[in-house]
Design a binder for these strands. Structure first.
Lengths: 334, 334
DNA sequence: TTGTAAGCGTTATCAA
DNA sequence: TTGATAACGCTTACAA
C-alpha cells in the first residue's frame, strides 16, 4: 500500500548499486564522488524513498525502542512516571511503547510477549503481577535487558528505588509525634515487596513507641480511589484517630467515604497518604503525604536502562532517590 | 548476553525443519503429526522462542500497530480514552503505541514522523496543536488512515464524536434552571473546534434567557488543575453565582482556589464541570458535570480505525456517542 | 508428513 | 570510487 519505492528502484534510477545508495543515505558516503552523492540524494527526494523500517531493523538489530509495562495508567503516580520515561527516552533518541496491564496477569504476559516480539531493546516493568523469576527467565533468554520497578523481587537486574522502609518510618513518626496512638493502616490487595517495606518501616516505629499494629487494624482493598472508598466501613469500625493509606489514591477514596458519613478530616480522623500525586494538593483538606519523585524515577529508570542497553557488561546499577514528608492539612495534632 | 532464540534453533532442537516449526506456530500445522506438533510447541515454551518481529513484518507487510497521540496522559479523560483504545486494540489483535505530546507542537510532529517510520497501520490523533490539513497531507501521502479527535477540523477523515453544542446547552440549561444568572465561563487557552461548540451551545441557551456572556466573563487558562487554580482571582473578580468550567480538571483547580479563599461550594458559588472524570465523584462537594464516555470513545475510535485499515475503500464513517448530565452537589438552586 | 529454497529490503564485507 | 554478495530471521511455494 505504501512504500513501493525500494532502495533497488532508487539505485536503478541513479544508475548505481544499492551499496552506493545505502552508504550515501547513511552518511557513510564521503568516498563517493560528490556528483554521485548529489544524484542519489536528489532522486531520493524525488521518488520519496524511505528505508523500510523492518528490513533496516532486521539487520541493524536495534529498534531504539523500550517497552514499558505499568499496572494502571489512570493512577497519577504512573502517568508522571511515564512522562519521565518519555522525557528521558526522547533525550536519548529512544521511543517508549507503553502498556497498561490493568492489574491483569494475563494481559501483562501478553504485552510482555508482544514487547519481546517487537524487539524492544529493553524493558521497564512496573507491575507486580508477574513473578520476577519468570520475567528474568524469558527476558534473559531473549537477551533483553530490563529494569524491575515496584516489584516483588527487586534484587534482579538494575534498580531504581526509594527507601520504602524509611518512607514508612517517616509516615509513622509524623503521625505518632502528632500524638496519634489509635492508628489504622489501609493497604492494597497485592502486597508487593516495596509496599511490604513501607509497612515494615511503619511498624518498626510503632514498636519503638511500644505500640503494635495488629492484623485486624490492617485493612486491605484495591489500590484505587474506589478501593479506598470501599474500605471505609472497615476502617471506621476500628475507631482510629488516624489512618495511614498506603497510597494517595486510596486516601482520596477514604476522604469521600468519611465525608459522606459526616466525619470531618482532620478534626474527627486524620489521614496520611503516600506518593504525593498531583491531586494530593487539590483535595480538601490538602493531603499530608510522603512524596515519591515519580517523574524523576521514570527518567532515571530510563537512563539506567539505556545505559545498560548500550553497554550490557556494565556492573550492576543501583540508584536511590529521596523521599520527602509533605505536611499539608489532613493530619491534626491530638 | 544470551543470543536471541531463532526459528532455526528451535527447529534444530526439535529435529525438524524451519518450515515445520513456522507452520505449526502459525496455526497451519494440521498436516503434521500431532507428535511433531506437540514437540515443537513444547520446545517453543522451553526455549522461550518468540518470532522476530522485523523479519516477520518484512514478509507479512503488516505491523498490526496503531499510533495514538494524546495531548496529556495525566488528564483522566485521556487515560480512560486510552484504556478504551487498548481494550479495542486487544480485541482486534492490534497494538497501540501511545505518545503524550505534552501540548507541544514540536514533540507532536516528532512522534508523528516516528509513527510513520514505524509503519503504523493507522493513527488516532487526539491533539489540537497540529493543523488538520498538515496532518492530512502527511498521512495521506503515506497512505496511512487516521482518525482525528478533539481537533480543529474534525471534518476530515472518519469521526467519533459527541455533540458538544448540545453538551454546552445541557450545562447552560441546568445552571439557568437552577436560577443562576451571573455566570462566568472558564475555558482553556487553546480553543479547539469541539470546545468552541461547547461554548456556542452554552451561549445559545443564555441568549434564550436574554442573557449574554460577554468576553470579560470568559476566563482563559491552561486546561489543567493548576490552570483552573490560577484562574480563580480572575473568576472571583466577576462575582459570579456560578462558574462553568470547560473541563473537570479546571473545575477541580477552581475548587481549591475558592476554598483557600474561604468560599463555600455551592453555597457561595456553584461550579459545573465537563467530562466526568473519575475524580469528579471524589471531590468535596461532588462535581456536577456533563459525562463524556471517554472509555467508549476510545473503543469506538479504535474500531472505526481498524475497519478503515482493513477496508480502505469504506464510505466515510461517523459515530456519535451520547452525553449525559450528571447532577451531583456542586450546583445550588438560587 | 516433512523439507528445500526463494525471497522480503536492508546493511556490511570485501574484492575490484 | 564502486559493486557483488552474503547475511538478518522469517514465511511460503514447491518438492520429495
Amino acid at each position: 500500500m505504501t512504500q513501493k519505492v525500494t532502495i533497488r528502484d532508487l539505485a536503478e534510477a541513479a544508475g548505481v548499486s544499492v551499496t552506493t545508495v545505502s552508504q550515501i543515505l547513511n552518511g557513510k558516503g564521503e568516498r563517493f564522488s560528490s556528483d554521485t552523492q548529489a544524484r542519489v540524494l536528489k532522486l531520493q527526494k524525488k521518488l520519496g524513498y524511505v528505508p523500510d523500517y523492518n528490513a533496516r531493523n532486521l539487520i541493524m538489530r536495534s529498534t531504539q525502542t523500550i517497552g514499558v509495562l505499568v499496572p494502571n495508567l489512570a493512577n497519577s503516580f504512573f502517568s508522571m512516571f511515564i512522562k519521565g520515561i518519555q522525557q528521558a527516552s526522547q533525550n536519548n533518541k529512544f521511543i517508549p511503547i507503553i502498556f497498561d496491564a490493568n492489574h491483569n496477569q494475563e494481559l501483562q504476559n501478553m504485552y510482555l510477549e508482544e514487547l519481546i516480539k517487537r524487539a524492544a531493546n529493553g524493558l521497564i516493568i512496573a507491575s507486580a503481577t508477574l513473578d520476577a523469576n519468570d520475567i528474568d527467565r524469558i527476558l534473559t533468554r531473549n537477551g533483553i535487558p530490563y529494569l524491575l520497578f515496584d516489584q516483588n523481587d527487586a534484587q534482579i537486574g538494575d534498580r531504581v528505588w526509594v527507601d520504602d522502609y524509611k518512607g514508612g518510618q517517616m509516615a509513622a513518626n509524623y503521625l505518632l509525634s502528632a500524638g496519634h496512638r489509635d492508628i489504622a493502616l489501609l493497604v492494597g490487595d497485592e502486597i508487593t515487596q516495596n509496599i511490604q517495606q513501607r509497612i515494615n518501616g511503619f511498624r518498626s516505629v510503632m514498636a519503638k513507641y511500644h505500640l503494635s499494629l495488629t492484623d485486624e487494624r490492617v485493612i486491605q482493598n484495591k489500590m484505587t480511589k474506589l478501593g479506598g472508598y470501599q474500605a471505609v466501613d472497615d476502617l471506621i469500625a476500628l475507631k482510629p484517630s488516624a489512618i495511614f493509606a498506603i497510597n494517595d489514591e486510596m486516601a482520596i477514596g477514604v476522604y469521600r467515604g468519611l465525608q459522606e458519613r459526616g466525619y470531618r478530616i482532620p478534626e474527627d480522623v486524620s489521614i496520611m497518604g503516600y506518593d504525593d500525586i498531583d491531586l494530593a494538593d487539590f483535595v480538601m483538606p490538602k493531603l499530608t503525604t510522603i512524596h515519591q519523585p515519580a517523574f524523576e524515577m521514570g527518567q532515571v529508570a530510563t537512563e539506567l536502562l539505556i545505559e545498560r542497553i548500550q553497554n550490557p557488561r556494565l556492573a550492576h546499577q543501583d540508584k536511590q532517590l529521596p523521599l520527602e514528608l509533605i505536611v499539608r492539612d489532613s493530619v491534626k495534632n491530638v
